[in-house]
Design a protein around this nucleic acid. Structure first.
Length: 230
DNA sequence: CACCAGGCAAGTA
DNA sequence: TACTTGCATGGT
């Protein structure tokens, strides 16, 4: 059995947990609550999570709006739509053929495995739900965790590129850590708390947008020069 | 013009 | 297991 590199023993738990809460408070103080996920229904969260894969949220918003105006933001309605028509509607989000197919595959899964009962599907225990999501074509670890946290409201920590960039840049996690290593790090060190996980992820993405893009304004990042930069 | 965005799957060695 | 590549629009 392999051990994740750089994962500390239990001793580390409280220290690292405190550090993350400190980061959270600093970012909350700086930016205020982000109110994530920006969606009106669990299904809208799921649609947004698929459409925003490697894509700017701005582009996704237009698609969601179009889908809502067409009345397609339900499993049943979306299933009625031919994939080629769905592709036209999600075009602005990029990878539109792939994403239209992913949306359809998800809706078909809920229909065939849960008789269309999305609420029932999302009401499972956290780990079975996460495992089932990961079997669905088009749903990888980040999309699965976003759905678990923001649609099912269960405490699964969401890792994204900004989470990795911010924490590795400050040497708070090991460079080159895998998705699961990072997620397990946060899950080990933090008490499960849906509200906290939701807001922290939103704040990390906000911070990444402002300070961790291709013109990295690292010097003016609110976390610059913090504890543990080794 | 080049490069990036709230990833994922499939193919190769 | 660890790289590599295709997917694609819209913004900087």
């Amino acid at each position: 059995m392999r051990h994740g590199p750089g994962r500390g023993g239990n001793k580390v738990r409280s220290n690292r947990g405190e550090l993350i809460h400190k980061i959270f408070n600093r970012l909350l103080d700086e930016f205020g609550p982000q109110g994530w996920w920006p969606a009106e229904t669990p299904f809208e969260v799921i649609v947004g999570a698929i459409l925003t894969q490697n894509t700017a949220w701005k582009n996704v918003k237009q698609c969601i709006k179009t889908l809502r105006e067409g009345g397609y933001l339900t499993v049943e309605a979306m299933r009625q739509l031919p994939v080629s028509d769905l592709a036209v509607l999600v075009r602005p989000s990029g990878y539109y053929n792939q994403k239209a197919r992913k949306l359809r595959v998800f809706c078909d899964h809920v229909e065939t495995e849960w008789q269309g009962d999305l609420e029932g599907f999302l009401s499972q225990e956290m780990e079975p739900l996460r495992r089932e999501l990961l079997t669905i074509h088009g749903i990888g670890p980040e999309t699965a965790d976003s759905i678990v946290l923001y649609a099912a409201e269960k405490p699964s920590f969401v890792v994204d590129t900004y989470t990795y960039r911010i924490f590795s840049r400050h040497n708070w996690v090991m460079e080159g850590s895998s998705y699961n290593e990072l997620r397990e790090y946060f899950m080990d060190v933090l008490e499960p708390d849906v509200g906290f996980f939701k807001e922290l992820h939103g704040l990390l993405v906000r911070t990444g947008h402002l300070y961790c893009r291709r013109k990295p304004l690292c010097e003016s990042c609110p976390l610059q020069g913090w504890a543990g930069d080794d």
